[in-house]
Amino acid sequence: MHIPDGFIPISQCIIYWIIALVALYFSVRWASAKLEERQIPLFAVLAAGIFAIQAMNVPILWGTSGHMVGAALIAIIFASPWAAVLLLSIVLILQGLIFGDGGITALGANILNMGIIGGFVGYYLFKGTKSIGEIPAVFIAAWASIFLAAIACAIEMWIAGTFPLDKGLAMMGLYHAVIGIIEGVLTVVIVLAVQSARPDLFSFKDWGKEKAEVLSK
């Protein structure tokens, strides 16, 4: 759902840029306060992996395709939506600058949808639903992160005068309800793989606890 240039008037692009820059400021603050040295290799490989997997479009129905975004994954692994904002911003900026995937003028909106909305929906839905079981909670959080990012995108396209509201919401919602299933399945697979490879960096058992609490047990 990378928005290209020309879909949003510049005056509205500026508003999304400001939102993205404020969120980036907070994500930098999060990294300076919470991102530990031992987490850096995982942060870097997940960024590289998300960049690569975003090029792997999977066909869905109706002649359409979609790919994993990864914001819920990052928010869950690092137990913070700001981690998703920071990592997705790095990926989206490089995609926009080097590969023409997502417009430069629309970069703020793309960071808002995929990084901020994706990360916050992913984090808070996982946190709120993990009592029903962590794996279904990861799936629900990842599915909703895509679906709600697409709904936000449809509303932005309507404000921009680019999509009609009813058709935009219906089609963006329908397509991304299906793409969200891909996001959900892959997020569950990757979360479990990280937990089994490096339980010291991520585990359901210690989720959201500070390092000191984990070590003192």
Partner: peptide
């Protein structure tokens, strides 16, 4: 990777008279 349009492009093709825009 599928070369089908993604969800946003697919929607754009159906609701916009001219969905091809120029990069900035």
């Amino acid at each position: 990777a599928s070369s089908n349009p993604d969800g946003l492009e697919s929607t754009a093709e159906k609701v916009m008279p001219n969905p091809e825009t120029e990069p900035a």
